[in-house]
Simulated assay, not measured.
Amino acid sequence: MNISVIGCGRWGSFLAWYADRLHHTVTLYGRDGSKRFAELKETRSNGLVTLGDSVQLTSDLSRAVQNAQILIISIAAQSLRMLMQQLSVLDLNDKAIVLCMKGLEADTGNRLTQIVEQYVPKTTTVSIWVGPGHVQDFTAGIPNCMVIDSRSPEAKEMLVQAFSSDLIRFYYGSDLIGNEVGAAAKNVIGIAAGMLDGLNKTALKGALMARGTREVARLIKAMGGSEITAYGLSHLGDYQATIFSEYSHNRRFGEAFVRGEPYGELAEGVATTTALLRLSELYGVEMPICRAVDAVVNQKAEPNRVLTDLFLRSLKKEF
């Protein structure tokens, strides 16, 4: 199949590498002026993956879209609306758009599929590809399980068939709301986990996992999804890769933040915290972990006090 990947970060580049490994015809799009894309054009490598000569590289968005049957988008969540404005003037009819990214729009609380659907024709299907997995593990041959979800059963079937391999086993999602919110919210839990690491309170990660999943499950249910989805691969199933892994940007950001150290990589959970608090107010769901992360990161509250209050000072029933 003809597949174009929009976004040349570590995950987008991996997806181009992965699709090429499955013998699809692959084009990878990157912006002019992007240092990452310039490096890929010069060396075919970003230090994590090396792209074969069969992968076409382009900075022409129209060219990337034109012949693609499947359009994979893997960019920063807060940049999605701007990209969709650019894509909306191109012919997207009958294409399958797959969002391989995790986040919510900070300004509106919108799910990413909601943003895409504002700009595409009715013949375009929109799906998500979420769940655990780091590039470093996949390229080392370590497999994992992931989820593809969509309102279109036909799109789910087509995508699972197109991308299943010995590296990734896909499950068919049945709760688009729950899988989108769960996948985005796990990054906020990842930041909280990093804060616990940075404060030498790593033992509290068990409590974080238990309470974090319940918190997100309540929101998913209030939004019309199934609360059991929070216990699936998009959220709880992604905790190892987000809360414990050395490769997790969100965990590493939280750890660096409480230690007062700079951290230059994108941590999607920061903007997602803002979006989740917006949804928390809209749906009347209390989200104490999310509020604690916001207090530390955005309101400059003292991390040790906030996290101690969160886990150790309230007396209440567990369920």
Rank of each mutant, 00 (worst) to 15 (best):
C100M: 00
G109A: 09
T108R: 08
D94G: 00
V89E: 14
D53V: 11
Q86W: 09
L92T: 08
R36D: 05
R81V: 09
V65L: 08
F37R: 01
S79D: 14
G109C: 05
R36L: 12
A76T: 13
S54W: 02
F37M: 07
L104N: 08
V49K: 04
R44Q: 05
A68Q: 03
R81I: 01
M101C: 06
G47R: 06
M101H: 00
L80C: 04
Q85S: 07
D107E: 15
G52Y: 11
G52V: 13
L71G: 09
R63V: 04
R81C: 10
Q78Y: 01
D91L: 07
K95D: 03
S45P: 11
A64T: 06
I97F: 02
L87T: 09
L99T: 07
L104T: 01
S62L: 11
V55W: 07
M82Y: 12
L87R: 00
V55F: 04
Q85C: 10
I72C: 13
M82Q: 14
L83T: 10
T108G: 01
K41F: 15
G109T: 07
R81L: 09
V89H: 09
Q85H: 00
M101P: 09
N110P: 05
E42W: 13
G109K: 09
L104H: 04
G103N: 08
N93S: 14
D60I: 02
N110H: 14
Q69C: 10
L57Q: 01
S59H: 08
L92D: 01
N67I: 08
Q56A: 13
L51C: 12
M101L: 11
M84W: 04
D94P: 11
I73M: 01
I97H: 06
A106V: 11
I70A: 06
E105R: 09
T43M: 02
S45M: 03
L57V: 06
K95I: 03
I73F: 05
V49W: 10
C100R: 07
